[in-house]
């Protein structure tokens, strides 16, 4: 039993690590989509962030500079998205697809040109990465049963960006529901005409939402390449941006629910890796692919109204014409 609990704890620990980039991207998606802009370009921004973080950290030897530039890269991609869909009222899905393909191509082309390693960046030494932070009193708490283990494994011992992601969730909720900017942001995603007639710029609001989202995706990218991993590899975002988008929808465009969805999707993946090849009583061997496909299955079922009713922002996907 104790062993089972310990295994479960390790799964939760892995869940948190897997869910970190999802949480950051999901919050980015919420900012953008609540302002009325469809954001399937989360994937591309995540990938750009990962590349820029690793490239800058490799060249300068500073993880912090890597993080900063990754955020700028995410913002830059967001601005392209905004330029196309806000300024020129282009199709938001088309623009998102373009950005994802651009990010795919650009990271490989620049990676090869800069480092000549087939699109990878050099491995970073430990000092140039965000390494796990051991919290105060871990050794002391060890003597306390259960709580000591939880404290050591689950709460302490993650890198800084995991905690940033965990903070991003309540912060997003606070900004969305308790700040003037958040109120306007929600309004512009529902009835942009009302925001406009109140004398507030729809364009500038939506741009700001995209910029915040870009920065968050950049952080998520940096997490992949200079915190969880030690270099950039081609296509390292591997669909995480899309899973984050699924989490946004699954969470009904609400920060806390989307956070729970990220944890659930993360747990499914963590459990899959843990249970691979294990024979469970009653169920038998766990079908890995089915477990990994669960986020997509669940999102489809949700969207089809089989698990509740999704309520997207009313003005989503529609360019605003004055």
């Amino acid at each position: 039993m104790a062993d089972f609990l310990y295994q479960l704890l390790l799964s939760f620990d892995a869940t948190l690590r897997i869910a970190t980039p999802l949480m950051l991207c999901a919050m980015a998606g919420i900012f953008s989509e609540r302002s009325g802009i469809v954001d399937i370009s989360l994937e591309g921004k995540l990938l750009s962030g990962a590349f820029v973080a690793a490239a800058v950290a490799a060249v300068t030897g500073s993880a912090w500079l890597g993080l900063g530039c990754a955020m700028l890269a995410g913002i830059f991609m967001s601005l392209i998205h905004g330029f196309a869909c806000i300024t020129h009222k282009g199709d938001q899905v088309v623009s998102g697809v373009a950005i994802n393909i651009l990010a795919s191509g650009l990271t490989i082309v620049l990676g090869i040109a800069l480092f000549k390693r087939g699109g990878q960046t050099p491995s970073l030494p430990r000092d140039d990465r965000f390494t796990p932070i051991e919290w105060w009193g871990v050794d002391m708490m060890d003597s306390v049963p259960v709580i000591g283990t939880i404290y050591r494994q689950l709460i302490s011992g993650h890198n800084m960006l995991v905690y940033v992601a965990l903070l991003a969730v309540p912060l997003t909720a606070f900004i969305l529901y308790r700040s003037r900017f958040g109120l306007r942001l929600r309004a512009v995603g529902e009835v942009p005409e009302a925001v406009d007639s109140a004398g507030i710029s729809v364009t500038w609001l939506r741009y700001r939402a995209l910029i915040v989202g870009g920065a968050l995706c950049g952080i998520a990218g940096a997490y992949l390449s200079i915190a969880q991993g030690g270099n950039f590899v081609r296509e390292m975002s591997a669909g995480k941006g899309y899973i984050a988008l699924a989490a946004v929808i699954f969470g009904n465009w609400k920060p806390l629910s989307a956070f729970m969805a990220c944890l659930m999707f993360g747990f499914l993946e963590a459990a899959t890796t843990r249970l691979e090849g294990v024979d469970l009583p009653l169920i038998g061997e766990v079908p890995t692919q089915l477990m990994l496909a669960m986020p997509y299955v669940l999102t489809v079922l949700l969207l089809a109204g089989f698990i509740g009713k999704p309520r997207p922002p009313a003005a989503i996907g529609k360019p605003y014409h004055k």
Binding site: K89, S95, A98, I99, I101, L102, S104, G105, L106, I108
Partner: peptide, 23 residues
């Protein structure tokens, strides 16, 4: 220093200009 992935970049740009920035 340039490879076939350059094509991805061109594709992305074409989608951007002839799709999203069509107007």
């Amino acid at each position: 220093s340039i490879t076939r992935e350059m094509v991805l970049l061109i594709q992305g740009m074409i989608i951007l200009f002839s799709g999203a920035l069509a107007y």
